[in-house]
């Protein structure tokens, strides 16, 4: 299964989607990259049809907010969004783009 790269504080164990320099919980500068399982729950999604210059060639694309089962929230892409795809749907990571994870609905 595809994993998702996030940050974990080596002092207190807090997870954060990053990038971030200071742990939001213990304020130590001990965040380090960690891969967590890519399974989670869809919080919401949208289909971006008018993209900023940088992403123009990719539109339309679906952006999603996902609560990973590992206990951290990430913003990524959703590759098989359908009109009826609703918040709460189970998703799993299927790949990654430049600085984001790609998910697919598995329901």
């Amino acid at each position: 299964m595809t994993q998702v790269q996030v940050l974990r504080c080596e002092s207190c164990g807090a997870l954060d989607p990053g990038p971030r320099e200071v742990c939001p919980r213990c304020f130590r500068r001990s965040l380090a990259p960690v891969a967590v399982p890519g399974t989670g729950r869809l919080l919401s999604w949208t289909m971006v049809r008018r993209a900023p210059t940088r992403f123009r060639g990719e539109a339309p694309y679906a952006v999603a907010s996902v609560e990973l089962d590992a206990g951290v929230r990430v913003t990524g892409r959703l590759e098989n969004a359908e009109d009826e795809t609703a918040p709460g749907a189970r998703v799993e990571a299927s790949g990654s783009g430049s600085g984001y994870a790609i998910f697919r609905s598995v329901e």
């Binding site: 999604w45 694309y61 892409r77």
Partner: peptide, 30 residues
């Protein structure tokens, strides 16, 4: 759209291609 996206955290949400209409599209769905 690109200029408005200066208001996003472009190391995190912005990297995914999220836009402000997108943020509110997500809010609507919830």
């Amino acid at each position: 759209t690109a200029a408005l996206n200066c208001a996003m955290d472009n190391r995190s949400d912005g990297a995914s291609g999220l836009t402000f209409p997108g943020l509110f599209g997500m809010a609507w769905r919830v």
